[in-house]
Computed example of a mutant assay.
Amino acid sequence: MEWGFLLAGLFVGIMVGMTGVGGGSLMTPILIFIFHVQPAIAVGTDLLFAAITKAGGIWSYWRHGVVKWHIVWRLAAGSIPATLATLWFMNATGMHDGNHNEIITKALGVALILTSSALLLKAPLGRLLRSQESHPVVSALYDIRENELNKAMITVITGALLGVMVTLSSVGAGALGAVILLFLYPRLKGVEIVATDIAHAVPLTFVAGLGHSAVGTVDWSLLVYLLAGSLPGIFIGTHLGVRISDHIMRPLLAVILVLVGIKCLI
C-alpha cells in the first residue's frame, strides 16, 4: 500500500508540474475511489498536501513582486471565517465518525465538475464576454466590476464560497479561484492572477487542513508518503510540460475531472 501512495503522489506531482492544476482535483478522488480512504480523511490529508506542495510558490512569486496582497486579504476575509464555520459544523455533527461521507463525496463531485468547466471554458467565456460587451447583462456585470466597493464585496463573498467548497472537498482553490479573479480583475497579468490565487490557496488549505487535523481527519503517515512521491513528480512534470502542448493536457485533465465528478454524484 505504501508503494501505491508513493506512486499516487508521483502521478499527481507530474500532473501538477505539467498543467499547474490537478493537485486536490486528482488526489482526493484517487484516495477515495482507488485506496478506499474515508472521504473526510482523504480531504483533510489532501488539504495539508496541497498547502505544503504549493507553499514554495509563494516565496518565488513574492520575490518577483507579482502577488496582489490586497486581493489575497479580501479573499481570506471571506474564506478563513467560512472555513472555520464549516469545520465547526462538520465536527459538531460527527465528521470524524464518517457521518458526512456522502456530503463530502457529493461536494467533491460538484467541485470537480466546476473545476473542469473552468479549465475548458475560461478562454471561450472571456472571448464571449468581450464580443457581447454591449449586451445589457454583460454591461451590468462590467459596471459592477468597475465599482471598487462592489468588487471588494464580491471578492470577499467569492472567498467565503471557496472556503466552504475547499473545506468540504479540498477542491476549488486553484482553477475556480483563478477564473473568478480573471473576471473581477481583468487588468492583472496572467502571472499575477496565478501568484495571487496561490498566495490565497496556501493559507486557506493550511487552515482547513489544520482544522481537519484537530478533529482527527488527517492521516500523517499517508501525508508523508504522498509528499515523498509528489516532490520528484513535480520536478519531472515541469520538464515534461515544456514538451507537451498545454492545449492537449488541459482538455484531457478537464475530461478526467468531469468523469470523476460524475462518478461522485451518481
Rank of each mutant, 00 (worst) to 15 (best):
E146F: 14
P39Y: 06
L125Q: 09
A111N: 06
A40G: 09
A92R: 13
T83D: 04
D246N: 12
V258Q: 00
E133Q: 15
G211Y: 05
L227E: 03
G109Y: 00
A40N: 07
H200Q: 15
A178N: 04
K122T: 12
F5I: 03
A107S: 15
I180F: 08
H96C: 08
M1G: 11
V21Q: 00
V171M: 01
E133K: 11
V255E: 08
S134F: 11
H247D: 14
A199K: 01
P251T: 10
T238V: 15
V255N: 04
G17K: 03
Y185L: 10
A140H: 12
W88E: 10
A173P: 01
A140C: 03
A82G: 07
S60Q: 13
L6Y: 09
I234H: 07
H239Q: 15
K54N: 07
G17D: 02
P232K: 06
L48G: 00
V137W: 14
A8Q: 01
V191N: 15
P81Q: 07
N99M: 13
G190M: 15
R127S: 13
K54H: 08
L119V: 02
K189N: 10
A76H: 05
L188Y: 07
R250C: 02
G98D: 05
G241A: 08
T196H: 06
I58A: 10
C264F: 06
A123F: 13
L231N: 07
I144M: 12
V37D: 03
V171F: 02
L114I: 09
V224Y: 05
I71D: 02
P186E: 12
L141T: 11
L114P: 02
T238F: 03
A40I: 04
V16F: 03
L26T: 08
A55T: 10
L181C: 06
A51I: 02
W59A: 14
I104E: 01
W73A: 11
V171P: 02
